[in-house]
């Protein structure tokens, strides 16, 4: 069975004053079960828009998104989203936020089983000691972990990551990347991630889908990454192969990225030769 297919997807918005805003056009790619796929592109090119359509939060204006051979019409817990800015409900505790998801998805399970499920996933993401705190009482990284636990607790087929590490400091970000990779490997997750960080995309994914700039952004290039899993951060970041992938991405994003009437792309902030161990320094 085909897992996720994005076929000729186009998207425009009807803005009350600006009229029709063309965002995406002619998007085609597919994803296999168990894969980790990352879409990379400049800010504002339409990555979140694409992810929302995969989630079912928004519908394409043209073409279709098919998940397990059924057209995506609305959001379902099988496609869990980890949002860009955690989106935890501030009036609920950490476990309260996770329980909201568990209660909704596993209505037929007993209260005890549901609680165990929520606690299990909070333990997995390392929040055992912070379950009864409120979101404003924990760090940014812990909030993002809670968002991760909330998504995992729904028992999804596909995890959708919308720049989940974007707002974190470098060290926390690397930690969360490694933990997400561990989860992907150990729990056999399928992950569709959106990011604007080149290093993050290469380090984590099996495939990097590169988008050029809008309006009418589309896919310019798909890069296959064949590092073995589980991935070892230092080994990968020091490898020549990594520098090669990185070069490819940066060349694409800063030379051919501007499509049509898009604004000129900003200058690269780092060259491929700069040895960077910790990912980040991404063009934004």
């Amino acid at each position: 069975m085909k897992f996720l297919e994005i076929i000729n997807v186009a998207k425009h918005f009807n803005h009350p004053t600006k009229g029709k805003i063309e965002v995406l056009s002619n998007i085609n790619f597919s994803m296999k079960k168990g894969e980790f796929i990352t879409v990379i592109g400049h800010s504002g090119c339409g990555k979140s828009t694409l992810l929302n359509m995969v989630a079912g939060l928004d519908l394409p204006s043209g073409g279709s998104v098919c998940f397990e051979e059924k057209e995506v019409m609305r959001p379902v817990p099988e496609r869990a989203v980890v949002f860009q800015n955690h989106s935890l409900l501030p009036w609920r505790t950490v476990i309260g936020n996770v329980m909201l998801a568990v209660n909704s998805v596993f209505k037929d399970k007993s209260k005890k089983e549901r609680l165990e499920r929520a606690e299990h996933w909070l333990k997995v993401v390392g929040l055992k000691d912070h379950m009864h705190k409120y979101p404003h009482e924990i760090s940014g990284g812990q909030r993002q972990r809670t968002g991760l636990a909330r998504a995992l607790a729904m028992g999804p087929e596909l995890m959708l990551f919308d720049e989940p590490f974007g707002a974190l400091d470098e060290l926390t970000r690397s930690q969360l990347q490694d933990e997400s990779l561990r989860l992907h490997f150990e729990e056999n997750l399928s992950v569709f991630m959106v990011t604007h960080s080149v290093d993050e995309a290469i380090y984590m994914s099996d495939k990097v889908v590169m988008m050029n700039n809008g309006p009418n952004a589309t896919i310019g290039k798909i890069l296959e990454i064949d590092f073995p899993r589980p991935r070892e951060r230092l080994k990968i970041f020091e490898s020549a192969q990594f520098a090669h992938y990185r070069n490819e991405c940066i060349r694409f994003l800063f030379s051919r990225a501007t499509g049509g009437t898009g604004e000129p792309a900003p200058a690269p902030v780092a060259t491929a030769e700069t040895p960077i161990v910790v990912p980040g320094a991404a063009p934004a």
Binding site: N52, A55, G56, L57, R74, P75, V76, P77, R79, A80, V81, F83, S87, L89, L100, A101, S104, V105, M154
Partner: peptide, 8 residues
């Protein structure tokens, strides 16, 4: 959006 994804 959270409410939608969680099927509330």
């Amino acid at each position: 959006n959270v409410a939608k994804v969680l099927n509330l």
